[in-house]
Design a protein around this nucleic acid. Sequence first.
DNA 1: AGCGATGTTCGCCG
DNA 2: TCGGCGAACATCGC
Length: 262
Amino acid sequence: MPELPEVETIREDFQGRFLGRKIAGVSIGNESRLRSPFPENLKILLTGTEFTGTLRHGKYLLAGTERGGYLVFHFGMTGRLDELFPSDPAPRFCRVTIRFQDGGGLSFSDMRRLGSLAWTDGVGEFLRLKDLGPDAMDPELDPDRFEKIFEHRRALLKPSLMNQTLIAGIGNLYADEILFQNGIHPRVRIPDLPAGIFEALHGSMRDVLALSIRLHADFSRFPDRYLLFDRRAGRGCPHCPGKLEGIRIQGRTAVFCPGHQG
DNA sequence: AGCGATGTTCGCCG
DNA sequence: TCGGCGAACATCGC
């Protein structure tokens, strides 16, 4: 569940389930690491403290602790959190379990192991370390600032929307949706965009992310005029008489409609 | 059996 | 420095 709305959904869930519960211990599952090694002293950092709040930046979830410092989650493509009740078995691809004194637990699972866990003492420090751009839903990211981010860039728009250094939170699926809504072909370069398009791009970026957050990233509840309602090459375009097509761009699939994405 | 899948990072090249 | 490409990571499902 990995792009911004999915992580926001996980954050809201975390907020309701795991705050204020004293941590009794941490166990590392499956004797293996994720993409990067676990914070070395994870057990020491967490045992005896509790989570006091959460924040999200792009696709990262930061859980603040009472002692200060944040546990940082990245979910890769298949990462997920589950609440464990006493005597619940660990999920199949559980990598780390945080156990609470009340007998419950929090499990971080990740089938493909593309996710990661990290520790940081401060939010600013973490953002600098990862070189993350502004969060796509940050209210201060207005259309002007949004446009300036792309100024003087010659790259394709789609990979730039997905570039977390420029803007944090948009992945392959939401980038496809934004292009789809604006009638932009996925191979269009930034310098070739029509003048004044950035205000519209900013608007649909915000609209689709906000809608998805509201619907807990459940695409089946999207209006059927959205690409993400059923993003599949070969199906009819919900926007024009065209048929959706899939192409590879920089190693990822782009689904688009050649009929109206000129 | 082979390939692609909501992501990131690294090395290589122009 | 920027931009593009391919690989690597591990597992599942079509």
